[in-house]
Design a protein around this nucleic acid. Structure first.
Length: 201
DNA sequence: ATTTGGATCGGT
DNA sequence: CCGATCCAAATT
């Protein structure tokens, strides 16, 4: 018997850092409004653990923008940055605890040449916009899939998060994970630590 | 009502 | 390093 490919709701409650780590290797799938299907393999993530974590949007309280981050686990939080890019997060804690994992890069699957390195390009390539803010990831529009069993182990790097210099000490937390051997990882400060591990629990 | 600056990216 | 481009949130 094969287990379902979609991780169950409980997956998103395993702890934000654990979820960030275990999302590596999973597939992200989006069925656009016009029926077009997009798919990619997750190769880079970051954990955000508000409200204490000053790098998290939710550190500044519950606002209209961050509402989804305060909502139930396993839903999308999509926001606009720098006036032109959308970024996709997965909510990873119970209602009222604003944790999320930012999906930073994918390896394209079935779309050679797709530009999916970095959170903004990832959303652009998969057709993900703010209309998906709050979307349930256990539905049939936007979801995750575990990789096939017996996927080879990959080298995983753990490092500091990108673009959060404003967060003081929190910027030094090693809450970024990426596949060391992927050509699609966005900017790469040297890993603080690397190890081999199985991906996509 | 106005200002500020951002979980980015590509080009110089 | 810089500019693009828009909007949320803070400030006046």
């Amino acid at each position: 018997m094969s287990r379902s490919k979609k991780p169950p709701r409980s997956f998103f409650l395993k702890g934000t850092v654990t979820v960030a780590r275990e999302l590596l290797g999973m597939h992200l799938v989006h069925v656009a409004a016009d029926g077009a299907r997009h798919r990619g393999r997750i190769v880079e993530t970051e954990a955000y653990q508000g409200p204490q974590d000053l790098a998290a949007h939710s550190a500044r309280g519950r606002t209209p923008r961050t509402e989804a981050m305060f909502g139930p686990p396993g839903h999308a939080y999509v926001y606009l940055v720098y006036g032109m890019w959308n970024c996709l997060n997965v909510v990873t804690a119970r209602v009222g605890r604003p944790h999320a994992v930012l999906l930073r890069a994918l390896e394209p699957i079935g779309a050679p040449g797709a530009r999916t390195w970095g959170p903004g390009l990832l959303c652009q390539a998969l057709g993900i916009g703010r209309e998906l803010n709050g979307e349930d990831l256990l539905g049939n529009t936007l979801w995750l899939e575990r990789p096939p069993a017996r996927t080879p182990r990959v080298r995983i790097a753990r490092a500091t998060r990108i673009g959060v210099d404003y967060a003081g000490d929190w910027a030094r937390r090693p809450w970024r994970f990426y596949d060391l051997d992927s050509a699609y990882v966005s900017t790469a400060p040297a890993p603080m630590r690397a190890y081999r591990g199985r991906v996509g629990k």
